Computed example of a mutant assay.
Amino acid sequence: MLRIHLSSADLGRVRVARQPDELWNVALGLQRLRAAEGPSALGGWRTWAGERVARTPGGREAVHRLATVLPTRGYFPDFLTPTRGEATLDDGLRTLLETPAERVEAELRLLGDQRWEHTRWVTETGLGGLAGAMTRFHEVAIAPVSRQLRAMFEAERMVRDRILLDQGVEALLDSFTPFARWRAPVLEVDFPVEQELELDERGLVLLPSAFCRGRPTSLRDPDLPPVLVYPVAADWSEPKAEAGAIAALIGPTRQQVLACIAQSAGGRTTTEIARELGVSTASASQHATVLRNAGLIYSRRLGNSVLHGPTELGKALSG
């Protein structure tokens, strides 16, 4: 179990990441690709990614190299995910390449003597080769599904931000059952090893990830910026316009519904839309369904309510 100790100052510094972290996507995605799971795991992404790796030049080599430093489960070196859990690929790799050689070797040795023999190439050739392999794997298996990943991330962030806004940070921490439990002033997280983490007023970044498997993960070194990566349900289907759905959008009421949703940072429930626009809840729900079918909004259940947020296309059209 991981026990994260939060002072009152830390509670004020808890937040959900603003964007996905691409190096975490690479690391956890590689683990999921190589895990002993069925072909339908992650909605078919594992099968799709495996086929792309096999037929893309440099794909197999990149996976082979990364596999030496990324076991299919358990600990992997902290320097592979060096940012605070919300970085682009370029930013993350830039930070990774600045890792001191002593730290690289020390963290690789934590993988064990037997694996050390297979990871020495990293210290012997420098981090450029490792960064190249991460870049190639990202190009092959992560970048092509970036829109789906972003949509899953934004939907999850919308729900968590809404809980934080309406109910406060302790309710947010309490919402991560079944894999975490808030027992003030400690967040108890299901973890493969016993670990205590004192935040010491550094706060905590919560990073949702479709590639995180089963239970959350974090960095081994307690002195690094605290980040907790937690699993979200993977839905790889992109919102697609149904036949005639765009035409059905024409009309002032639906335009108002879309604007109402897009202008709210924390999303809008069906009831809130109905109240703001002076329509019935059934009417608001019907309009939201049309908008969702047209790929302009996404919807997620929050307790007994349905929370709606705009897709990138919805934001563009609402402006």
Rank of each mutant, 00 (worst) to 15 (best):
D221E: 08
E238H: 08
H287K: 09
R55I: 15
Y298G: 06
L173Y: 05
A234D: 01
P82R: 01
V229M: 08
A241N: 13
D223Y: 07
S7R: 12
E188N: 00
L204V: 06
V140F: 06
L317S: 14
L11M: 15
A41N: 11
A106C: 04
L207H: 14
M1E: 10
V53L: 15
E238Y: 11
E37Q: 00
V232S: 12
E188T: 08
T123A: 02
T281C: 02
L302M: 14
A259W: 13
E98L: 04
S175E: 04
A265P: 14
A87N: 01
F176Y: 13
Y75N: 08
A155N: 08
P71G: 08
R15W: 05
T81M: 05
L206S: 10
V229P: 05
Q167W: 09
H287Q: 14
Q114K: 09
L23G: 00
L89S: 13
A143E: 11
G85R: 03
R183W: 05
A151I: 11
R3H: 06
L296R: 07
L80V: 05
L258R: 04
P144G: 00
L130H: 07
G132P: 06
Y298W: 09
E272R: 15
V189Y: 00
T72W: 09
R183I: 10
R202N: 04
A87C: 03
D10L: 08
I297F: 04
A180Y: 08
L224S: 02
G214R: 13
R73Q: 14
V189H: 09
V14P: 02
V227W: 07
Y298H: 12
A265Y: 12
T68A: 12
A54D: 04
D21M: 13
R84F: 00
P225H: 12
L2V: 02
P225M: 03
G267N: 07
D90N: 11
T72F: 03
I4C: 04
R162W: 10
Q148T: 13
D78G: 11
N293T: 11
T88K: 07
E276P: 04
D91C: 05
L206H: 01
N25E: 15
P310G: 01
L219R: 15
A274Q: 01
R3W: 05
D221R: 00
G309S: 00
A234N: 03
A131K: 11
L42S: 04
A9V: 14
T119P: 01
L127C: 02
R275H: 10
P20S: 06
T123Q: 03
T72H: 06
V16L: 05
Q19M: 07
P71L: 11
L23H: 07
H287T: 06
Q255L: 15
T271S: 14
E194G: 00
A87F: 08
P185S: 04
A155R: 11
E105Q: 13
M134N: 12
L23C: 02
A155Q: 15
R254F: 02
D78S: 03
A241D: 13
T253Y: 15
R300L: 02
L296N: 11
R109W: 10
A54T: 01
V306P: 01
P57K: 00
R60E: 13
C212L: 06
S318D: 03
R84L: 09
R220G: 11
G319E: 15
A265G: 14
G266C: 14
P185T: 03
L164P: 03
A243I: 11
T56G: 00
R147K: 15
L313N: 12
H287P: 11
T217L: 12
P239M: 11
